[in-house]
Amino acid sequence: MNIVYPEVFWLLIPVALLLLPAALNYRKGYILLLKLAGEWRKVKTTQVYMIKTLIYWMTIILFFVFSILALAGISWTKEAVRDDSTGLDIIFAVDISRSMLAADITADRLSRSGELISSLNSGFSRTRMGLVIFKGDGEVLVPLTDDRYIMETAVRSLSPSLYTVPGSDISRGITKAAGSFPEGSPAKKLIILITDGEALDGNAEDAARECYLQDISLFVVGAGTEEGSLIYNSDGSIVSDSLDQAVVTKLDRSHLSDIVESASGNYYDISDVKTAGMIIEDIKSLQEGSGAEGIRLQDQMNYRLFLFIALTFLVLNLASSRIRWSRWY
C-alpha cells in the first residue's frame, strides 16, 4: 500500500475535536428535552434523542474522515497502462557532505559510493547516466551522457571540496536530480540516491513523493552504519560541535526508509557485497517493465472508494435531519 499525501492525516485532528461540540450539544439538548417531556415520557424521549444525535454526529464525522482518506491518495492495487517509453536514463545523486568521509565502512562512505557507481557505470553500456552532487544544495556534475569515460573521471573526483555550499539537504539533491532529465524524453527515469541519511534542512520525503508523481523511479542506497563513526578534518583533527564535543555521524536508516516509502522505491545497504548485483537486477527489471511489450504496471489511486463512502455518510446525515423524530416520542 502506498500513501501519496500522508500529511493530510493531520486534518483528522480537527475532525476529532468535533467530538467536544457534539458532547456539549447533546448535553444541552438532553437537559432541555427533560424539561419539555416531563417524567412520564422521560425514558422513551431520551432514548430517541440519543439515537438521533448519535446518527447525526457519527455520519458527519465519518464523512470528514473518509473525505480525508480520499485526499490522501491511498493505493493498494496496480493497473496495466500503455508504456511508450524507450530506453533508460539514470541520475546518480551523491551526498558529498563531510559526514560521507566517515570510515565506519571499508575505506569510507564516499569512496565506497564511487566504487558502486563505477560498477554500475560499466554494467549498462546503452544507458545514459548523469551525476548530481549535493550538500546544502544540489549541483549537476555530469549531465546525462553515454560517455562512460566522463562519468568515471567525475566519480574519481568525488570529494566534499567539490562543492562549498554548507549544510546537508537531501531534498535538494533529489530535486536537482529529478530536474536533470530532459523534458519530453521517452526514456524511463531512475534516480539512484546515495547518502547516509543525515539531513539538517529540507523535506526529503516530499521530494521523493514528487518523483513518484512524476513517474521517476527512486533507488536509495544507505552509506554507513548505525553505530556510526567520528569525522576527521583534513589536518587529522576530529570534527567537534559548538560544545566542543566530538561529532559522531550515523546512518539514519529510519529516515531513508521514509524516503523510500514516499517514492514507493527500493532500499539497499552499500556495505552489503550483494548490493551492486541487486541494483543491476532491479534496473533490468525496470527496463523490462511488466514483461509485456508496451505495457507497464502503475499504482491505481483508490480515492473513488473513499469518496463514495464519504458521500454515502453525507446523504445519511442529510436524511437524518429530515426525519420526523417526534413521531417516536
Rank of each mutant, 00 (worst) to 15 (best):
N203A: 12
A204M: 05
E205Y: 03
E205M: 11
E205L: 06
D206N: 06
D206F: 07
D206C: 01
A207N: 10
A207L: 10
A208V: 09
A208M: 03
A208P: 06
A208F: 04
R209G: 12
R209H: 01
R209K: 07
E210A: 00
E210C: 00
C211G: 11
Y212T: 04
Y212G: 03
Y212N: 11
L213Q: 05
L213P: 00
Q214C: 00
Q214A: 07
D215E: 12
I216K: 02
I216M: 03
I216S: 01
S217P: 01
S217T: 04
S217A: 11
S217G: 02
L218Q: 05
F219D: 03
F219M: 12
F219P: 08
F219A: 03
V220A: 01
V220Y: 05
V220S: 04
V220D: 05
V220W: 03
V221T: 07
V221C: 08
V221R: 03
G222D: 08
G222Y: 04
A223N: 11
A223I: 08
A223R: 07
G224P: 14
T225H: 09
T225D: 10
T225S: 15
E226G: 09
E226H: 05
E226A: 12
E226L: 09
E227S: 07
E227F: 04
E227I: 12
E227D: 09
G228Q: 08
G228Y: 08
G228N: 09
S229M: 08
S229C: 11
S229I: 08
S229Q: 12
L230W: 04
I231C: 03
I231R: 04
Y232E: 15
Y232N: 12
Y232K: 15
N233Y: 12
S234R: 14
S234D: 15
S234N: 14
S234T: 15
S234A: 15
S234Q: 14
D235A: 11
G236V: 13
